[in-house]
Nucleic acid binder design. Structure first.
Lengths: 255, 255
DNA sequence: CATTGATTCATACATGCGTTTGAAATAAGG
DNA sequence: CCTTATTTCAAACGCATGTATGAATCAATG
């Protein structure tokens, strides 16, 4: 049969529910690629190409701002390729997220363990904890600079998809929040003077500082006439962490 | 003529370009209101109703997530009312933004003048400047609580629209950035030890703290099992300002 | 009361979307 | 070489969307 194989044959395409009826009509001229070897099974290559292109375009234009036609045209693959490899547009979004999320969370956990190993039990300094939390996503975001090419802009993607994407995406993000609890616990140890609400509010604001890097960098660019260097990732990470540390370690308000 | 009056007759509907051809077809059953007095010219009332409903729904579902059919159904007006009063969906979005933006920026400017009047020339304290910048949008966002009804959720709207909306919207936001320059200037006076890049980075992070209130409050809610009180607007504003002040006033890094 | 201008209404239209289809192309196995 | 499983392709399909149309309704005016 020429139709896609049975569900889960290769852990892909879990879809299929109804049928259409072939008839007549027109959709305008196709804008597909002009690949000179049609039908060649480059398989995994196409899949990765779609994922990379989708990740970049979702960041630039938002979930509903990216049409399958624009996506496949830019990736240079056939319109039907996305449905063949991922089933639906929603499933593609979830896969893009999963791919980036896994890598970042693994790296965060590794850095946190490292920081805790260096200090006496339960006494890792605030700065090291924040660095473990901030550095992986920031490095992923800032890598490559203008020309990208480096690595993924995953966090920008997350920020957009959380607002814009399908409900399942938001559920997935909430599960991701559980991952943050280890960092809150570490901070609670490092800042024993803070009540739980006080700590949580400050943690929330610290996350806001982190997010300021993928939101509105255009605003900063507009205000600074080129005096802010966006290319030095290490320097930026240092600034972000410094600001958040200052907020977290500020003395308790009077009263 | 029954068609809308000439452009700019009442500073509305600036649109109109082509014509359609009446023919046959069906669009499914209409879901319009069942208002018992059809054709009654309640005019301005309808316009405001659309604006309010649009503002709320754009926040909840994003620009492209709100269809004109859903919007008009929820507002209880006819589908064609939006095009009659605003021309296009894009124009409606811009109008929603303009309405909220004007009020907030006016209030910000007023508070800044007030703070500067109380101090010696060019010496307004950091905390007062930040309060002028943060309080108007925060109060607008936090007012009303769960049941809303209070006043606008304008900033959430802006955050979403900037990502999601038409290109013209982003242009409008950039123009809005110019408004922030007065606050940067005031902070430069209050923090003379900071170099311009240092100041601009810290200002950018402070804006991130502000934005943390309309992004991801769900995350905070998930982490805190009800221990964080979201209802006391004054307390929240105090916390946000405290955090940002600590970051802005932190000592310069060594080296 | 007839006229006029503004607004609402039901319905239609054209377009673009995500998705499906069936066949063609490819590579691997025996 | 024939078969088989996988992938690509052009073309459509059905549906939902933003917008347009023209008649109906209402309020005000003279």
């Amino acid at each position: 049969m020429p139709t896609p194989p049975a569900p889960e044959a290769k852990a892909r395409y879990i879809w299929r529910e109804g049928f259409g009826v072939t008839g007549l009509g027109s959709d305008g001229p196709m804008t597909g690629t002009a690949d000179p070897r049609p039908g060649s099974p480059r398989g995994e290559e196409t899949r990765t190409l779609i994922l990379d292109t989708a990740e970049r375009m979702f960041v630039e234009r938002g979930y509903s701002g990216v049409t399958m036609r624009a996506l496949t045209a830019e990736a240079g693959v056939n319109l039907a390729a996305v449905n063949y490899h991922f089933g639906t547009k929603d499933a593609l979004l979830l896969e893009v997220f999963r791919r980036g999320s896994l890598a970042i969370n693994r790296e965060r956990a590794r850095l946190l363990r490292e920081a805790e190993a260096l200090a006496a039990p339960g006494t890792a300094p605030v700065r090291d904890i924040l660095r473990a939390l901030f550095e992986p996503p920031l490095r992923a975001t800032l890598a490559g600079g203008e020309a990208s090419g480096g690595r993924s802009i995953y966090m920008q993607f997350v920020a957009r998809a959380a607002l814009d994407g399908p409900a399942e995406m938001r559920t997935m993000l909430e599960r991701d929040v559980r991952h943050l609890e280890r960092f809150v616990a570490a901070l609670a140890n490092a800042l024993p003077a803070l009540s739980r609400p006080e700590l949580l509010w400050r943690f929330h604001f610290a996350m806001g500082v982190l997010h300021s890097i993928y939101h509105d960098l255009k605003r900063l660019d507009a205000l600074a006439d080129g005096v802010c260097d966006m290319s030095d990732a290490d320097a930026i990470i240092g600034r972000v962490v410094d600001f958040a540390v200052a907020g977290l370690e500020q003395p308790l308000p009077l009263g």
